[in-house]
Nucleic acid binder design. Structure first.
Length: 252
DNA sequence: AATATTGTCAACCGCGCGAAT
DNA sequence: GATTCGCGCGGTTGACAATAT
């Protein structure tokens, strides 16, 4: 039986760390011919490597736009949140964090976050909630009760105000899994407290995803109004079931 | 200073999936 | 429908660095 995923001549090709010369050969070839056809790429590029090794080197190291090291607090919070939702689906997690690779996130998780969670299980969720609540307050001048949230419980108790959002329902990332439609909805601020976008919350902001208290998921959220209390705020987002979100992520 | 231990991370391996034949 | 191929994924390994003893 054929051994899947392994080049027939795997034992003849070079393995281990890549040299600068090999990196240049690979980069030059991909720049000239684009990615794909990894199996034939090494021979065409003059590399004594297997296609899988070339692909990995390109995706995790040479590809333009790769960020290396110094994972920020915001990125760390996003990783924690996404991992809670997605589990060890590193490629999906990496897909929501620009410039980071699945390998880097996986390494960061296994060497750092896993241990951190074990010793500090509760702090991360509190940070997220506080940050989001404070930013919501900054966009809505009538919500002074949220400007200095101390705990999630105190926030909930003060959230008797709600505002009406005119929203349009559209599919995330232009995928075709959802029909377009318009709807009106009413959201109390407390329902947004778990919102976990990776950019600052406010008019004009866009988000990759968010999760409401009821477990529903918002993706591609865009806050388009001025957020001044009685003025109408428009929000464009896709409200999807969790399985649909996973499918949408996988489709990108 | 020498050795042992621990941490980090690039790279490899095997598997599963979808497309092509 | 069965088989083959190519790709992408997650788990694991191993080389090297940093730290502890």
């Amino acid at each position: 039986m054929k051994k899947r995923g392994v080049s027939p001549k795997a034992e003849e090709v070079k393995r281990g760390a890549w040299t600068d010369e090999e990196d240049k050969l690979l980069s030059d070839y991909i720049e000239a011919h684009g990615i794909g056809r990894w199996r034939n790429l090494p021979a065409n590029a003059g590399l004594n490597r297997c296609g899988k090794s070339c692909r990995l080197r390109w995706l995790n190291y040479l590809r333009p736009g790769i960020k290396r090291g110094n994972i920020t607090q915001e990125e760390e919070q996003l990783i924690l949140r996404l991992h809670k939702l997605l589990g060890n689906r590193w490629s999906l997690i990496a897909g929501r964090i620009p410039g980071r690779t699945d390998n880097e996130i996986k390494n960061y998780w296994n060497t750092y976050l896993k241990k951190k969670i074990a010793t500090d299980a509760s702090s991360s969720s509190k940070i997220t909630t506080t940050t989001v609540a404070a930013t919501i307050a900054a966009t809505t001048s009538t919500q002074s009760s949220l400007e200095n949230p101390s705990t999630e419980e105190s926030n909930k108790s003060k959230n008797d105000n709600s505002i009406s959002h005119k929203a349009e329902f559209k599919s995330p990332n232009n995928s075709s899994s959802h029909e377009e439609e318009n709807l009106n909805l009413t959201l109390g601020f407390d329902s947004l407290l778990n919102f976990n976008g990776h950019q600052e919350f406010g008019p004009g902001s866009e988000f990759s995803y968010g999760e409401l208290h009821d477990g529903s998921i918002l993706t591609n959220y865009e806050w388009r109004g001025t957020g001044k209390g009685s003025e109408e705020i428009q929000a464009s987002f896709a409200e999807v079931e969790w399985e649909s979100l996973i499918k949408s992520c996988e489709a990108v």
